[in-house]
Structures are given as C-alpha cells and as structure tokens.
Simulated scan of single mutants.
Amino acid sequence: MDSNHGQAKDAGKHGLGDVKALVFDVFGTVVDWRSSVSADLAAFGQRKGIEADWVAFADAWRAGYVPGMDRVREGARPWANIDVLHRERLDVLLDEFGIEGLDEAEKDYLNRAWHRLSGWPDTVPGLTRLKQRYILSTFSNGSVPCLIGMARHAGLPWDAIYSADVVRHFKPDPRIYRGVIGFLGLHPHEVMLVAAHNGDLRHGRSHGMRTAYVNRPTEYGPKQSKDRAAESDWDVVVSSMTELADRLC
C-alpha cells in the first residue's frame, strides 16, 4: 500500500480530539499580503515622491512567487529562500514600473515589506484563543526571518516557526509536510493543517494530517478566481480564525 494513502486512511481512525498542534499556511490564510504590501509600497512612494499603481505592483510581485519557487523545485537553480526570490522579482519590477534612483538600503527596505504583513482582522483574536488549547506553528514557504518579522509586526502568537528553510524544500514537496510532523514530535493525525488553499490541504491530508479550510475569497482581490470555497470534505470548514476557535476550543 502507498504509505501516504495508508497515513490518510489511518487519520480517519482518530477524532479531532486527538489533534495537539495546528500548523498554518501564512500568506493569504493568516495575513492579508495584498493590502499590506500595496499599502507599504504606497507609503514609501509618498515619502519618496514616487507615483505608481502600487496594487498592481503588489499583484505582479506575488505573481512571481510560484515561478521563482518552481525554478528551485525543478533544479534549475540552487536553493534560494523566499527573501532572495522576492528580491530578484523586485529588481525586475522596479525596472518594469520605471522606478529609478533607489539605493541598496531602500531596495532592501522595500523587499522587507513581506516581513511587515498584517493579519486579517480575525487572525490575532482567533489565534489567541486557539493557543490556549493547541501548539501553534507556521507552516510556510516564507523564510524564517520573514516569518519572525511578520509575527513581531502583526502580533502573531506562534509557539514555533517552521518554514521551507528548515528542510530547504518548498511546498508541495513531501519533505516539508513530513518535516513539520517530525519537527513537532507528533503523529500525523495529531497535526492539523490550517489553510485557505485547497491544494495545500490536499497534500497535507495525503500525509495523514487533519485539515481545516479557512475561506479567504479576497486574498487576491475582488476578482479572485480560485480558492473561493472548500473543494473537499475537509475536517473543518470556516470563514475566519475566530470561527475556527469556536469549532475547536
């Protein structure tokens, strides 16, 4: 029997009461990256007297996220974390948007906009309640410095920071899913993956993790075309972190 199938089947033998830790996809699920990045860029532009469509800039920046990781996944380049990939994309976009004259310190500051993301309004209240019962950890392709900076900026009450940096592989590589289970010293059915992305949850379930879908239908703006609803019978389906706390606490 395929080991992943066996793990998923075994998870069905256990109830949600066996869950000891919640691990969270961060970008889009926990934090509102689109509003945060565009506002951060707009504030910088205002200080520097630079005019641009900063929402379009944020969207274009995020659009480089998966292609950048794919080059690493496919072996087209050595391991590089998200901070490096974001910076490479930033340099391209500054040229495309005709933004000139920034020094290295200013470019580094802009790149760290991803370290200064704010949570959705329900995030901190929900996580604070969930923390009373569960171990809370990040489960993200973001870098460790990015996730720490974000936690300090947004007041995210993590017990642990786990990212692709730990195993040097991006989701959906199986090593990052298996890695977080081992990182916490738990069994797969004792770990619940919380995400706004159906694909992430599918991979988590295949490794025996429990699953919670948090609906974020405007992560990519009002015209978002994917992940607008749950696409499977996830263990829990909610519309906010506070609702997740209502369900689990």
Rank of each mutant, 00 (worst) to 15 (best):
G126L: 08
V92G: 00
S118F: 03
R175W: 07
W120M: 04
A164E: 11
A113D: 09
L127V: 10
N198E: 08
I176M: 15
G199Q: 11
L186Y: 11
D83C: 02
P188T: 08
D200N: 08
A196S: 15
L110Y: 05
N81G: 04
V194G: 05
Y162T: 09
L85R: 03
I148E: 15
Y162E: 04
M150C: 11
E100F: 12
A154T: 10
W120S: 07
I99P: 06
T138P: 00
L184R: 04
D165Q: 05
V166M: 06
F139I: 10
L94A: 07
K171F: 09
K107A: 06
R112G: 15
W158V: 09
W120F: 07
E190Y: 01
S143M: 06
E100T: 15
I135R: 11
P78K: 07
E96G: 07
Y134F: 15
H115F: 12
L94K: 00
N81R: 06
A154H: 06
L193W: 05
G179Q: 05
G182P: 06
S140E: 09
V166R: 08
R116W: 00
G142M: 00
L136H: 01
F183P: 07
H197S: 12
I82V: 13
G185R: 02
R87N: 13
F139H: 13
I99C: 01
A105T: 13
I161L: 10
A80G: 11
V191K: 02
L102V: 11
G155R: 00
R89H: 10
L127A: 05
L94R: 07
P188S: 04
M192K: 00
E88G: 15
A195C: 02
V144C: 01
Q132T: 15
I161P: 01
V84Q: 12
L156R: 00
D165A: 01
L102F: 10
L90H: 05
L93M: 06
V167L: 12
E106S: 09
I176E: 08
I148R: 14
I181K: 05
R133E: 13
H197Q: 13
S118K: 10
A196C: 09
L93R: 06
L156A: 04
R133F: 08
P78V: 14
G199Y: 14
W79G: 08
R178L: 13
P78Q: 12
Y134Q: 09
H115T: 13
S143Q: 10
P121I: 09
H86C: 09
L147F: 04
R112Q: 15
L136I: 13
L127M: 07
G185T: 14
Y177K: 03
A164S: 14
A164I: 10
W114S: 04
V124E: 06
K107W: 02
A80P: 01
L127F: 10
Y109W: 15
D91I: 07
D159F: 03
T128W: 05
F139P: 08
Y109G: 04
M192G: 03
R168I: 12
S143L: 04
R116A: 03
F183Q: 11
N81Y: 04
Q132Y: 03
